[in-house]
Every structure is written in structure tokens, then in C-alpha cells.
Simulated scan of single mutants.
Amino acid sequence: MTAFLDWISQFLTTSPLWIQSPIVILGSVVVCSLLAIILLRIVDILGAWVQRIGTPKSSGKGQKPHHG
């Protein structure tokens, strides 16, 4: 695995800029997209959890009013 990563880094450092740029940009877009999906999932889970905490368990419908 280390040899493969060494080959990739050697290829990128010896390549001209017009080859390096699209590869780096494409790699950045892929990594950022994956991180965005994970972050959005975490936000959705936390939002549902907070909404569940803030919502009363019963809405009061069908209950007798308390007098007294």
C-alpha cells in the first residue's frame, strides 16, 4: 500500500501543472462531497433528536380538563 501511495505522489509531483490541477480539484470535490453527506446526516439526526425532546409526549387531545 505504501508503494502505491508513493507512486501516486511521485506521479503527481513530476507531472505538469495542467495534469496536477484537475486531479487535485477532482479529488477535493469527491472528499468534500463525502464529508458534506456525513455532516448533513449528523445534522438531520441531531435535528430530529432535538425536535423529539422539544415536543410534548401528548398533545392534550381527548383528555379531560383538570379543574382544581
Rank of each mutant, 00 (worst) to 15 (best):
M1T: 15
M1A: 07
M1C: 13
T2I: 04
T2G: 11
A3H: 12
L5D: 13
L5S: 07
D6P: 00
D6M: 08
D6F: 01
D6S: 10
W7Y: 14
I8A: 12
I8K: 14
S9Q: 05
S9K: 15
Q10A: 13
Q10Y: 12
Q10E: 13
Q10R: 15
F11C: 04
F11M: 14
L12P: 08
L12T: 00
L12M: 14
T13R: 09
T13Y: 02
T13Q: 08
T13I: 07
T14P: 00
T14V: 01
T14C: 02
P16H: 08
P16L: 02
P16S: 06
P16D: 13
L17H: 09
L17E: 11
L17S: 09
W18C: 03
W18A: 12
W18Y: 14
W18K: 06
W18M: 07
I19L: 12
I19E: 06
I19G: 05
Q20C: 01
Q20A: 05
S21F: 13
P22K: 10
P22T: 10
I23Q: 04
V24N: 01
V24A: 03
I25M: 12
I25W: 03
I25Y: 06
I25G: 01
I25R: 04
L26W: 10
G27C: 02
S28H: 07
V29P: 09
V29L: 15
V29A: 10
V29D: 13
V30S: 08
V30W: 09
V31D: 07
V31G: 11
C32A: 11
C32S: 06
C32L: 15
C32Q: 03
C32P: 09
L34R: 08
L35K: 10
L35A: 11
A36W: 13
A36Q: 12
A36V: 12
I37S: 12
I37M: 06
I37H: 14
I37R: 10
I37K: 13
I37G: 08
I38V: 14
L39M: 07
L39R: 06
L39Q: 12
L40D: 04
L40W: 04
L40N: 06
R41C: 04
I42L: 08
V43G: 00
V43P: 01
V43Y: 11
V43S: 09
D44C: 05
D44L: 10
D44Y: 14
I45K: 11
I45M: 01
I45S: 09
L46T: 13
L46P: 00
L46C: 14
G47E: 03
G47M: 13
G47F: 13
G47R: 01
A48I: 09
A48N: 07
W49Q: 01
W49A: 01
W49Y: 08
V50T: 02
V50W: 00
V50S: 00
Q51K: 01
R52M: 02
R52A: 03
I53H: 00
G54N: 02
T55H: 00
P56E: 01
P56K: 00
S58R: 14
S58Y: 01
S58W: 02
S58C: 05
S59C: 15
S59W: 03
S59N: 14
G60D: 05
G62P: 00
G62V: 02
G62Q: 03
P65T: 07
P65F: 12
P65L: 15
H66C: 04
H66Y: 15
H66P: 06
H66F: 05
H67A: 13
H67L: 06
G68F: 03
G68S: 10
